[in-house]
Design a protein around this nucleic acid. Structure first.
Lengths: 334, 334
DNA sequence: TTGTAAGCGTTATCAT
DNA sequence: ATGATAACGCTTACAA
């Protein structure tokens, strides 16, 4: 059997003071005599007292926890890269110095969407982060409607006033294309991501921005961020546009697929066709040739989301969007 | 401002019954007249009542949540494969039908170890899962000492009575070696994992088991599960044992590193040297040649841990060890 | 500066 | 079958 933890009451008796005083000491109130403070501190140590979370949040009306909501589809798409762990690591780091705990909620089934909403609505958490790749996801808004602070990863597509943290996908993609142009490439294609996801949309927009005004014609092949789709798209591209001499893939996985297709077709990378990816997952350094790619600071996304949420939970206002920079990492493939 | 949720009291007034009755209905007690049950249910819906977690667990002394504790070193080592996300997915799936929430705690700093212990000790969770790759980690035992149910992923090295869930690494490794022998390989080396981790130890033990009695001499090169270490180890192996015609790497990442080294040395895989990995991460299907490897059911580990914990939290006894099977997946590299 | 006491929203033990 | 009522452990006016 699990023995009951000592309560404030017991510490108070042990220290010969009132419950209120112990509470003050525990919570670091300055209005306690140094002498008594030490007295109480000793009793706390002696009895191994630890405040009861439930009791505390019952009276303070705060849960001291944030939820991280992961709609399953997104985690599946991004399964092979380190997005998910890296995001969590960033969040944890930022949460570390606070007393705030992280509650993980995966929306594995349709029913769980409702369950999550219920949970958040019940006031079990002081705020929620939604790692939603599908910009039209109604979940963030649904949560936000319950009055709980919510921040999303990735610009929401649906018209909604939920603050978000995103990376400069458009800028990164544009820079990638510029780089290809600067290297003298004249037939630059893109393998786009799914157009129901912000990441897919923005990276394609960046491609167009880079191509515009150069006199080159845009060449777009659809993909869904997976390696298979990249391989298929590249094969198709080689058939329809045999002159293609560069490709910007909207994900490293697709870039890898493209490289496989190119190798299969006997084209050398980057000699015949240059390839640039997006994400900078570990894999990028291990494909042959090493991948030139656009890096996004995943951990920073998590950290920024926490910072936003902390501000909001404290009743403060936050900017509706935080956009983190992306950087072009030059390696061998372009 | 966030409006306060309605309380039992208000629902009771709305339905014209007592607080106790509402509580009974909410908790599905059978001792309520069907008529009143419906009455109350309607009021609950009308007011949008959701039970207050803190109040409930204050009186029931249960938190309705489990902690997943991740000592940072392990997550770093396993960063590139999908161990961490897959584990969490399995846990979430098993937790889904229960009302139990998952609290994630990363031990990012030395100080956080203490913080985690404190938190668990405070009774904030009903049980803790520790994803501890380093078998000698004192954390599980420390947590267990607080009286909270604890279950570990991976057999603990330190002498301690914490129940654990592990996969049959030894058996998997042995099968891999047997397979190489069956294919006529005569100089089978292994690239071992770190010997302070159970996974490293067991996979090496399995290798020895497979080699024993075949008349072959064991050839062991040390590694640390990373691709770099695999590449280095393989290069070294080629120098010291040029006759080597097969290699069992204790991780897919190391196997990939080995393949790179082999290719660099002009050896063909599997023609000159067969390679078998361990883990079956996504990458295994995408390296060239596709990797023959030992698959471990990561999601099942998570699910099993939850099942153990649920039993323990309910006061039941669990077997001290659950060992899940591994399977040899045949592809191209061996 | 310290103590007293009134809740916070539930569940559970009694009576009825 | 239902309703009072007493906890559960803590914070926080308010009093002293």
């Amino acid at each position: 059997m699990r023995q009951r933890r000592p309560t404030l009451e017991q510490v108070a008796r042990h220290a010969g003071v009132s419950r209120a005083t112990v509470s003050r000491v525990v919570n670091g109130s300055p209005t306690v005599a140094a002498e008594i403070q030490e007295q109480v501190a000793q009793s706390v140590r002696a009895l191994g007292y630890v405040p009861n979370h439930a009791a505390r949040s019952l009276v303070t009306q705060r849960a001291n926890s944030f939820a991280l909501v992961l709609p399953e589809p997104s985690t599946r798409v991004f399964s092979e890269d380190q997005f998910f762990p890296a995001l969590i690591r960033g969040i944890s780091q930022e949460l570390e110095p606070t007393e705030i705990q992280l509650v993980l909620m995966m929306a594995t089934s349709p029913a769980s969407h409702a369950r999550i909403t219920q949970y958040v609505l019940a006031g079990h958490v002081d705020g929620a982060m939604v790692a939603s790749m599908h910009g039209a996801d109604p979940l963030p808004m649904a949560l936000s409607d319950t009055g709980v602070p919510v921040v999303v990863n990735g610009r929401p597509l649906a018209h909604c006033r939920v603050p978000y943290v995103d990376v400069d996908s458009t800028g990164g993609a544009e820079r990638a294309v510029r780089h290809l142009i600067d290297r003298g490439r004249r037939h630059i294609a893109t393998i786009a991501g799914p157009q129901d996801m912000v990441a897919g949309i923005d990276r394609l927009a960046g491609y167009h921005l880079g191509i515009d005004g150069t006199g080159q014609r845009p060449i777009v092949a659809p993909g869904d961020f997976t390696r298979e789709s990249g391989e298929t798209a590249m094969r198709h591209l080689l058939e329809t546009h045999p002159a293609v001499d560069a490709v910007f893939a909207a994900s490293d996985l697709m870039a890898h697929g493209a490289i496989r297709a190119l190798r299969g077709a006997g084209r050398r990378v980057p000699d015949d066709v240059a390839v640039v990816g997006f994400d900078d997952v570990d894999l990028a350094r291990y494909v042959d040739p090493q991948l030139t790619t656009v890096r996004q600071p995943i951990g920073d996304i998590g950290r920024a989301m926490v910072r936003q949420l902390v501000t909001m939970a404290a009743g403060g206002e936050v900017e509706p969007a935080v956009i983190l920079p992306t950087t072009l990492v030059l390696r061998e493939s372009a």
